[in-house]
Design a protein around this nucleic acid. Structure first.
Ligand SMILES: [Mn+2]
Ligand SMILES: [Mn+2]
Ligand SMILES: [Zn+2]
Ligand SMILES: [Zn+2]
Lengths: 159, 159
DNA sequence: ATATTAATGAAAACGATTATCAATAAGGAA
DNA sequence: TTCCTTATTGATAATCGTTTTCATTAATAT
């Protein structure tokens, strides 16, 4: 039901915010919009700059704070690819996102999403989770699989 | 051949240092010793403090510098478990170390090494590596698998 | 033993993230 | 709508892990 809260269409995450008791603000809407429109792995500053184009009053502090609550809500994932800054992307809970893992170039920082063998990996992960939960009494929430190496460009520049 | 370079037994990594053209110094020997004697996932400061007990002249800068070359030599792994500081441990290339993955408690930071299903995981990883190398022309050097969740203690404190 | 130069440590700099706090605006009540 | 409460915001300062700088020291080859 578009327009229920004034202007603009109702977004898929409005309910989530309501459930958590969070207010729906311009900064938060814009941050989500930027994340939704990007296919990359954005740092806090990346997001700040993109939001700044749409809503110049934004502060970097607000970006950090919003990202933190989004991570806690499970709407986004926070990654560390080893370049000293955290990177964020919409979780698979959100519409367009698809479950995937990462290939990281340790030379140039390039990141490739891959979904090959995802079914087999997911199956093994599920099995492992089940066993480890039992053995260590560990309540597993999520997991990451990352491959590190050299992308084609960087590998060529090396020899 | 113990005693070849003066005092103390010859260590397994002397050759590696020689190959890389690195000098064998007290700080470096002591840092390796501390890593070798610890079964935990030490931060740079953890290591600094432990070395300081043995060799009080050590500087934190030297610890960081040594850790970096050890990572590049492949003698140790550098991990980020999400608590804002890097953590290090001997790689499986070193004597006692065994290949394993990690369970990380997001509440208290506790880390559990696990080796269950390691064979199956390694097999799948190998297959994935082979395929991804071909598909993306990516030269894969290593990988990580990490499970995040709540350890038994923290899960109990939650309800 | 001497010369060469890699390695060291104290101090300052850096950069991402977090804390502080007065001003603002979202959302419920009237 | 208007008013009230208080969550949220943004500028600024502070924090903290890691790097850089640079003069001094010590490991190795000769
Ligand atoms: Mn991704
Ligand atoms: Mn470990
Ligand atoms: Zn690259
Ligand atoms: Zn815990």
């Amino acid at each position: 039901m578009p327009g229920r809260w004034g202007k603009g269409p109702v977004k898929w995450w409005y309910g989530e915010f309501r459930d958590y008791g969070y207010r729906i603000t311009i900064p938060r809407q814009t941050i989500l919009q930027v994340l939704d429109e990007s296919k990359e792995h954005l740092s806090a500053e990346d997001i700040y700059l993109k939001v700044h184009n749409i809503y110049p009053a934004i502060g970097l502090t607000t970006v950090y704070r919003t990202l933190e609550i989004l991570v806690n809500m499970g709407l986004i994932y926070k990654f560390d690819f080893g370049d000293g800054r955290a990177r964020y992307e919409l979780s698979s809970g959100s519409r367009k996102a698809f479950h995937h893992y990462h290939l990281i170039c340790t030379e140039c920082g390039r990141i490739i999403n891959y979904t090959d063998f995802i079914d087999e990996e997911l199956e093994l992960v599920k099995k492992t989770e089940k066993e480890l939960s039992k053995k260590y009494n560990f309540k597993i929430k999520n997991h990451t699989i990352q491959f590190y190496g050299l992308c084609d460009r960087c590998a060529n520049n090396k020899e």
